[in-house]
Amino acid sequence: MKLVDSFRALVGGGALLVATGATTVLSGMPAIGQEAELPVVSFTTAQADRGRSAYQTNCVDCHGANLDDGEFGGPPLKGMSFKEKWFNNTADGLFDFVKATMPPDRPGALNDQTYADLVAYILSRNGLQAGAAELPADSEALSKVEIR
């Protein structure tokens, strides 16, 4: 209340309205040093199903049928080590990494929609639930959603 009284003394009764308005505007903003929480990544069941099909064609030999038991030693795509690396980050990192490095014999050879479908499938196998919206096949849009 001292701040409001100081404003009143400095500029008169109108300052209370200014201070109140500022409080209202600022109340929706994160505190200093605190980041705004991004929306959670979304994908559909149909998209994860398409991703499963693409996975069977392009990924299963290295990463295995269970995403962590591949014949050719690809890193696990589910479980604690995967979650520690990719969860609580924006989805563009995972999408861009998969697109830039997979399949190893022809990185970037699949279309963007197929990469998004693969990411949707991998996320579904890591316990994320399908929603109403598809995972975008666009790195910029994926930078605005978080895996969690």
Rank of each mutant, 00 (worst) to 15 (best):
L26P: 02
A22E: 07
G108N: 07
D92W: 01
Y115E: 11
E71Y: 14
L142Y: 13
P136F: 10
Y121S: 02
S139C: 04
D138S: 10
T101N: 15
R8W: 00
D117R: 08
L110H: 10
S42E: 15
T57V: 11
S81A: 11
L10P: 00
G64F: 10
V41A: 14
F7Q: 07
D68G: 06
V25N: 05
L17I: 12
T23V: 12
K83T: 07
K144L: 15
G79T: 05
T57G: 01
R8A: 05
G21V: 10
P136N: 03
H63M: 01
D49M: 09
G21S: 14
G51I: 01
G64L: 07
G127K: 05
A65F: 09
V40W: 01
A109R: 09
F95A: 06
L128F: 02
Q47I: 01
E134Q: 15
P39W: 03
A137F: 14
L3R: 09
F95V: 08
D69K: 00
Q34H: 11
G131P: 10
D96C: 06
Y115W: 03
K144E: 12
S6A: 15
G93Y: 15
P103N: 02
K99I: 00
G28F: 07
F7D: 04
S81V: 14
K78F: 01
D5V: 08
L123I: 07
N66C: 02
D61L: 13
Q129I: 07
A130Y: 02
L17F: 08
V119P: 06
G33Y: 05
A65V: 09
F82H: 05
V145L: 07
D49N: 13
T45M: 05
M1E: 08
A109W: 08
V60K: 03
G14P: 08
A19I: 05
L26R: 03
G12W: 12
S42P: 03
V119F: 10
L17Q: 06
V60A: 07
G21T: 12
A120P: 13
R50F: 12
F7E: 05
P136I: 05
F97Y: 14
S139E: 04
G13V: 06
E140N: 15
M29V: 01
K83R: 15
W86G: 00
F72Q: 01
L110S: 09
V60D: 00
L123F: 12
F97K: 13
E71N: 11
A91Q: 04
T101H: 13
L17M: 06
S139K: 05
H63A: 00
L118G: 00
L128Y: 01
N88R: 14
P104M: 14
E84D: 09
G33C: 06
E84S: 10
G33S: 09
E35I: 05
K83S: 11
E84Y: 09
P104S: 15
V11Y: 15
T24W: 14
C59F: 09
S143T: 06
K144Q: 15
G131T: 02
E37I: 13
D61S: 12
K83C: 04
E146V: 14
W86I: 00
V18W: 14
T44R: 08
K2L: 11
T90M: 04
P104A: 15
K99C: 02
G79K: 03
D49S: 13
